[in-house]
Amino acid sequence: MTDTGSDETGTDRVVEASPYLTDLDVRRYLLQFILQCKGIVSENSLLSCYLTLENDAGRFLKDEPLSLTAWRLKLTDHVSKLNLQLSPLNYRITMVNHPMGKSYVSRRFENFITDLVDANWPPNARFYVYTNLKYDSQMKMATSFSAADIGFLKWSIEKILTESSYVQQFEREEESSDVIDEVDNILREKYGDEHYAGLKHFVSYRIGSGELMQTNEITQTRAEELLFELSERKWLYRSPEGKIGLDVRFLIEMKDYLVENFDVPLCVHCNEVVLQGIICLEAREEHNYGLHVGCLEHYVKHVSDKCPGSDKTFQEAGAYAIG
């Protein structure tokens, strides 16, 4: 998945505000910020943008302590009002939890308003995603791409979700991923260092970019251009090793397409598609259960350490989902 820090933070993204900003102005700038972030931005980043706007407008009392909880509620209210404005246009700003969980996301958040708020913001995995509600999955693709481009996109998705999505023996020295590290941290804390040795299997939902160049749908040059366009759109991401996977915005906007056309695991906690986290191998053909990294942390702490619908623990019957 795309590095959550590099795509959405930075002082160059903060809009210059005037002391006479109205609430309508604030909402207009917040929407502009979300769009500048390619339609997906962490709540902490959007909140820091909002606080900067309010500070530049002179709305903070001198020496007033900033309560992030109170300002987060005000931000939520602004987003709700934005959605009322966007509804006639068939767009919506949807709040989702990043599949990698709050610890991972928060470590990559850069606080660029340290003079206003303490740098140690509470861990937070919430993201805002600008989504198109007007068309179904097929039409969302058709409105942006040619028929040949759509053919390549569908072919690529099929390769990503089927080419290597079989259960494989996990060899630690051969596979590396932030997913593995985060899942290990959660389960090691649950079972203890002396009892946890890592999972024995994994399922990959990534594919080498070179394999996607072996297409008959479009030219290689156009394939490279399209992969870049899809990365900019936050539908695909490219890992440091050059592997291609499905990014967060695609999983949100195209969930129906994925569920209807592929046997993708769904999270037992939030019911979204799981490509990053853990899947249960027990009775997989009957119940394709999974948990995102963030959902796994909540599940093992508050529900159970056993795979859903199974008497086996995650360590016994779980596999890393690396997407």
Score class of each variant (00 low, 15 high):
residue 4 T to D: 15
residue 6 S to R: 14
residue 10 G to N: 13
residue 12 D to R: 10
residue 12 D to S: 08
residue 24 L to H: 00
residue 28 R to T: 10
residue 33 F to E: 09
residue 35 L to Q: 08
residue 38 K to H: 09
residue 38 K to F: 02
residue 59 R to V: 07
residue 59 R to A: 08
residue 60 F to P: 01
residue 62 K to Q: 04
residue 63 D to Q: 14
residue 65 P to D: 08
residue 66 L to G: 14
residue 73 L to S: 09
residue 75 L to F: 15
residue 78 H to V: 12
residue 79 V to Q: 09
residue 81 K to T: 07
residue 85 Q to I: 08
residue 86 L to F: 11
residue 87 S to W: 12
residue 96 V to P: 05
residue 98 H to F: 02
residue 100 M to D: 03
residue 105 V to E: 07
residue 106 S to V: 00
residue 107 R to W: 12
residue 108 R to P: 02
residue 108 R to F: 00
residue 110 E to H: 14
residue 114 T to D: 10
residue 115 D to L: 10
residue 116 L to C: 14
residue 118 D to A: 13
residue 122 P to M: 00
residue 130 Y to P: 10
residue 130 Y to L: 04
residue 136 D to P: 13
residue 136 D to E: 15
residue 137 S to A: 09
residue 140 K to F: 06
residue 140 K to V: 02
residue 141 M to W: 09
residue 151 G to F: 05
residue 152 F to L: 14
residue 155 W to M: 03
residue 156 S to L: 03
residue 156 S to Y: 01
residue 157 I to E: 06
residue 160 I to Q: 01
residue 163 E to R: 07
residue 167 V to D: 15
residue 172 R to H: 14
residue 181 D to Y: 12
residue 188 R to H: 09
residue 189 E to Y: 12
residue 189 E to W: 10
residue 196 Y to A: 01
residue 205 Y to A: 05
residue 221 T to H: 10
residue 226 L to M: 15
residue 227 L to H: 06
residue 236 L to W: 02
residue 239 S to T: 11
residue 241 E to D: 07
residue 241 E to V: 03
residue 241 E to S: 07
residue 242 G to V: 01
residue 246 L to I: 08
residue 251 L to H: 03
residue 256 D to F: 11
residue 257 Y to D: 11
residue 258 L to I: 11
residue 265 P to F: 04
residue 270 C to V: 00
residue 272 E to G: 04
residue 275 L to H: 06
residue 277 G to D: 08
residue 283 A to M: 09
residue 285 E to V: 01
residue 288 N to P: 05
residue 292 H to P: 00
residue 295 C to G: 11
residue 301 K to A: 06
residue 309 G to P: 01
residue 310 S to A: 05
residue 311 D to R: 03
residue 312 K to L: 11
residue 313 T to D: 07
residue 314 F to R: 12
residue 314 F to A: 03
residue 318 G to V: 11
residue 322 I to R: 00
residue 322 I to Y: 00
